[in-house]
Computed example of a mutant assay.
Amino acid sequence: MSESRPPFPPFDLTTALQKVQAAEDAWNTCDPHRVSLAYTPDSEWRNRDRFITGRAQIVAFLTAKWQRELDYALRKSLWDFRDNRIAVRFQYECRDATGQWWRSYGNELWEFDDGGLMRRREASINDVAIDESDRRYFGPRPDDERGHDFALH
């Protein structure tokens, strides 16, 4: 039996927003295995300067990421969508082992197969050091913030 992950393409506004929120929710668990199941077994990624193929590499990448990026909290926002593609912008905050806090800004391009699994992800990301007092995100998005966009900076 083939895998699937609703909602399925082609996306409309409602289903694109659902897909983006589901991705945000999954990534905020910091569970590499859970996150990897939203991608095809042969999914291809470009993440910054890294090229990753397949779920095993996704799990390895995310495991290392969340060992370095402590207290990770992510927000994603729908930018646009068409057919089986979604564009998002995102921000996340984390601290490193020295206690330095970071806010990372980025854009992602997603392409899905017919079963709703992501087969391609391209991410461009920039990091900005912030003071702990400048933090905006404290864990997963609360229910009363769902559907709201976030400030550029």
Rank of each mutant, 00 (worst) to 15 (best):
M1E: 14
E3R: 15
S4M: 12
R5L: 13
P6L: 13
P6Y: 12
P10G: 05
P10W: 14
L13D: 01
T15C: 10
A16Y: 04
L17R: 05
Q18K: 09
V20A: 01
Q21R: 09
A22N: 05
D25I: 04
A26R: 15
W27I: 04
T29Y: 13
C30E: 13
D31R: 12
H33Y: 07
R34A: 08
Y39G: 02
P41Q: 12
D42Y: 02
E44Q: 11
W45T: 05
R46F: 00
R48H: 11
F51S: 03
Q57A: 15
Q57Y: 11
F61N: 14
K65M: 02
K65W: 03
E69V: 01
E69W: 04
D71L: 05
D71Y: 08
A73C: 06
L74M: 06
R75A: 04
K76Y: 04
L78Y: 09
W79Q: 01
F81W: 10
R82L: 14
Q91D: 03
Y92D: 05
C94Q: 03
D96H: 05
A97V: 05
G99A: 00
G99H: 13
Y105F: 15
N107T: 15
E111V: 13
G115H: 08
G116M: 13
R119G: 04
R121D: 02
N126I: 03
D127T: 02
D127H: 14
V128G: 07
A129L: 01
S133I: 01
R136W: 05
R136N: 08
Y137K: 00
R141E: 00
P142W: 09
D143K: 11
D144F: 09
D149P: 14
F150I: 00
F150E: 06
